Computed example of a mutant assay.
Amino acid sequence: MSGCGCSDIEIKDQSQRKVLYWLLGINLVMFFVEMGYGWFAQSTALIADSLDMLADATVYGIGLYVVGRAVRAKANAALISGYCEMTLGLLILVDITRRIFVGSEPVSMVIMTVGAAALIANIVCLRLIYAHKDGDVHMRASWIFSANDVIANAGVILSGALVLWLDSRWPDIVIGIVIAFVILRGAKTIVADAKNELGSEAALEKPMNCKDINLIDK
């Protein structure tokens, strides 16, 4: 035995890092764009989606940290990511409750324009992560986040159209609530997947690295 598959592992790790760097960068940029325009447009849906982008960026940062590490570390990272998303979903619901009582005047054209830009950004993210959607647990989590983001963005655009059509702030609030529950559902799926991984024998096994295998060969 000579190669021990190390080059294949390194190629996979490099591929994961490259994808996660792109996802991290895109989500950070869109967080600032959506948050800024969300406050300007007084849009619950845009602000909810921007916070989702921030949570996803955090998740991708955690994912970068565990690339190349043991399965257990990746599962723990996915678990933390899931709880982060869950917390975010609850915070969005708190903010929506505040806005229901305080009031808002969402600007429909800004909501639709920024929502469309976010949708394009997340479709790019989805294409980038597609090859890894059935891979390690932290990459599966990233796939779920990206897929949920596309759904949320479509909802944001719909809310802007309904605000314009009905001349009412309620579609924006309702879509914000829907986005929060989409986030919570995705978080629940990720937490369950991570716990499954941690409970399996594969996750508890100490991984044998290339150095260990080469020592055995000798």
Rank of each mutant, 00 (worst) to 15 (best):
M35N: 04
G36W: 00
Y37W: 07
G38I: 00
A45H: 04
I47L: 11
D49C: 02
L54M: 12
L54A: 05
L54W: 00
L54I: 03
D56V: 00
A57E: 03
T58S: 14
V59R: 03
G63V: 03
L64K: 09
L64V: 09
Y65D: 14
Y65H: 11
V67W: 01
V67R: 08
R69K: 14
V71G: 05
V71A: 11
V71Y: 09
R72G: 03
R72K: 15
A73R: 15
K74E: 12
K74T: 07
K74Y: 06
A77L: 07
A77V: 05
A77F: 06
A78W: 10
L79C: 01
L79K: 15
L79H: 14
G82C: 10
C84S: 15
L88T: 15
L88I: 09
G89P: 02
L91E: 04
L91G: 12
I92C: 11
D95M: 13
D95E: 11
I96E: 14
T97L: 15
T97A: 14
T97Y: 07
R99D: 11
I100N: 06
G103M: 08
G103H: 05
G103Y: 04
S104D: 14
E105W: 01
P106F: 01
V107L: 13
I111R: 08
I111C: 12
T113I: 06
A117G: 08
A118H: 11
L119E: 08
L119H: 05
I120G: 04
I120P: 05
A121D: 02
A121C: 06
I123A: 03
C125F: 03
C125S: 15
R127W: 03
Y130T: 10
H132W: 08
H132K: 11
